[in-house]
Design a protein around this nucleic acid. Structure first.
Lengths: 253, 253
DNA sequence: CGTTGCCTTGAGCCCCTTCAACGTAAGTGG
DNA sequence: CCACTTACGTTGAAGGGGCTCAAGGCAACG
């Protein structure tokens, strides 16, 4: 973990994406938007497979994912792991820590990842100065909670193949490849990590990926996923993007 | 569903409990506390097994559980259900709907339940007048999210018996029977509902309950659970109450 | 050019499900 | 007070989805 220079455009892009996420569901004035984009912080590069928030640690900053991919990890006594959240560039991965600074889960870089650490104090200051921003933060956290709730249902009640199909659909939507649904996008998850997201073993995840490939739904190759038949994949995963709240018209409240 | 009279003391108690929940983690002035206790609303009794928030519905009020027990339900295409949250008296079951009014999950009365419907407008007004209350609301939602995250881990990576033991431990803590851990408390969940919480079938939930009874960990009888050996139950369920945030000293921020 | 991490495939087993039957308690209407 | 219904709990037998264990392949990397 070391400080990073020369990626300011990446940072601007990530902040802009987060702003997009917020304005998708909350109404923010130009001044509020500018204040958000001016949040101070520190760019840090994290090596693959390293925690940048450790379990039980008390944190005083939240992490915006600038590039790469991050996961929230839970772990049982005998070392089995479950990933309870995935965070793409433009996600404020642990905004919740502003309210609950004692990390109940570790945050781990699943690939080479660059994060931007923003002090909690600045969120508090911003929220106090602009109540609508405070609302937007709260709302953003609730979207993450809605995703988690969907994951609980998926991992609790869907069979293995459906779980994987569902995840592919979700990441396709969140990566905003949209437009043509039959397309391809970056897939940085190893099969081991995929298994940790879906509550399976990597052996079985592998077999289910094969099944999805053989029936022409989707295939993963060279760190990319190709969606061969969106409708079929969506049907297998019983996927409905409503919970992602992507089309919630923000309302003045 | 009909209006209710004559339970004003129950209501006061439930509001007081919710206030306790909040002040456990947030610092609130006397004025803020009074404002919270004065929240307007409507008392409604819900018959067992009835939804009081329907899937997809747009809601404009949040529900405080006054008495009874409520569950948040997810459902797969072929009708399998999963309960992703349980709410006891004193819980504002869908405070999150203040930020996301489109219900992504149904809320269901698991027993005869009385709720107190508080208009979203009043939360907004309160949050604007008292920023610390807005923070307390946000924080309260994050505690529910932390519980959900733990449930995802439990249902995704623990075997059946451990899942049930874990749930019993959690509800024991949340019901605040505390003090002596080896004790008894109300248990209103049928085995079918227990299975829907833990992602099992009721048949297997039944067998695991028998196992827990036979090894002297806990037993359920006549709508009550008796914890026979707290340490053993806790070990079986790999339970650690940290995620419940019960001992988080509230800090001035 | 050995090491390391990940993907792939096979064989056998087990936890949990499915299916089915029966018991019990509470409620309901005659 | 008694048939009838309904909901829930209990138990057995059999099957399957996913796990475990094991081996081997490939690509990247130092």
């Amino acid at each position: 973990m070391h400080r990073v220079r020369a990626t300011t455009t990446d940072l601007e892009q990530a902040l802009a994406r987060w702003l997009d996420r917020l304005t998708l569901r909350s109404v923010l004035s130009a001044e509020e938007q500018q204040a958000l984009l001016s949040l101070p912080g520190e760019l840090v590069a994290i090596a693959p497979n390293r925690d940048f928030v450790r379990l039980g640690e008390r944190v005083d900053r939240s992490c915006l994912i600038v590039s790469g991919l991050a996961g929230r990890f839970g772990q049982t006594r005998n070392g089995e792991r479950l990933i309870t959240a995935l965070h793409l560039p433009g996600d404020m991965a642990d905004l919740h820590s502003v309210m609950l600074p004692d990390a109940a889960n570790a945050l781990n870089a699943l690939t080479e990842t660059v994060i931007y650490r923003v002090p909690h104090d600045d969120f508090h200051a911003l929220g106090r100065r602009f109540p609508m921003l405070a609302e937007a933060f709260w709302r953003d956290c609730m979207v993450d909670a809605a995703i988690l709730s969907e994951w609980a249902l998926r991992n609790g009640r869907l069979p293995a193949k459906a779980r994987i199909a569902h995840l592919i659909c979700e990441l396709s939507c969140r990566a905003a490849v949209s437009g043509s649904r039959d397309g391809a996008f970056d897939w940085r998850l190893s099969q081991i990590q995929l298994a940790d997201v879906t509550g399976l073993t990597s052996v079985h995840a592998n077999r289910m990926l094969r099944a999805l490939r053989e029936e022409g739904a989707a295939q993963i190759k060279d760190r990319r996923v190709e969606i061969l038949d969106w409708k079929r994949l969506r049907a297998i995963g019983e996927f409905n993007d409503q919970y992602l709240q992507l089309y919630t018209a923000p309302e003045q409240s």
